[in-house]
Each structure stands twice: as C-alpha cells, then as structure tokens.
Amino acid sequence: MRLDCPPNVKIIRLPCTGRIDTIHLLRAFEGGIDGLYVAGCLEGECHFLTGNLQAKRRVEYVKGVLKALGINPERLQMYNLSAAMGSRFVEIAREMTERIRQLGPSPVRTGKGREV
C-alpha cells in the first residue's frame, strides 16, 4: 500500500474509543488544536460491545459545547473503520486535514473571538 498520512496528524492510541471522556476532547481544543477526530471501530464491531457508540455520543455532546463556545463543531469528527482498513485510514486523515485547512487556525489560538 505504502500510503502516507499527512504529517500534521498526530495519533493518540487508546485501548478503545469508549475510554474517551468529554474532558479529553475539550482539553485538546483548550490547548489550541485546530481539529480533532476520533477513529473508532465499525458500529456493531466493538470488542467491548458499546465503546464506539458511547464515544459517538460523547463526540456529539462536545460538538454541542464547541458550538456554544463559538468554535466550529466541524473541527471535531468521529469516524468508524476497522483495523484492516489502512487505505480508508489515510483517506480520512487527508479528508480531515483538508477540512481543517479550509477552516483555518483555531480561534482559541488566534484570539479573534467566536467563529460561529
């Protein structure tokens, strides 16, 4: 395959997306990150049964919080793919990079006030 991920994507490994708490997502934005996506297993395929479904709800909750704070919720996404889908993984990394590039830097870093 030999596919390259964009170098701006930093991968944080977790045992399961069910481990993600809302504070993890929010703290990333507080730290000034431009975009963030959660890559969980396919729905219905969670080894721990509902980890990815819980992550989905938490991502949705934080998207609502970001909107209330004035950050474009598009900066946070959840994707579902299996460990065998390497090409899809790279496709998502590129898609997300392009999306964030279009949105520009996070308003938390620029200090220019609400973007939405």
């Binding site: 504070i23 929010l26 507080e30 704070l69």
Partner: peptide, 19 residues
C-alpha cells in the same frame, strides 16, 4: 469534580478566544 474540570476548561477556552 468532573463537571468542575469540564466547565473550567470550557471557560478558559472561551476566554482564550477573546484573547
């Protein structure tokens, strides 16, 4: 305690946006 952490982080985030 969890909600304190979350709310404090949200407030700091909002303030950083205002510089």
């Amino acid at each position: 305690e969890k909600e304190v952490r979350f709310l404090a982080s949200a407030i700091r985030t909002a303030r950083k946006m205002e510089g």
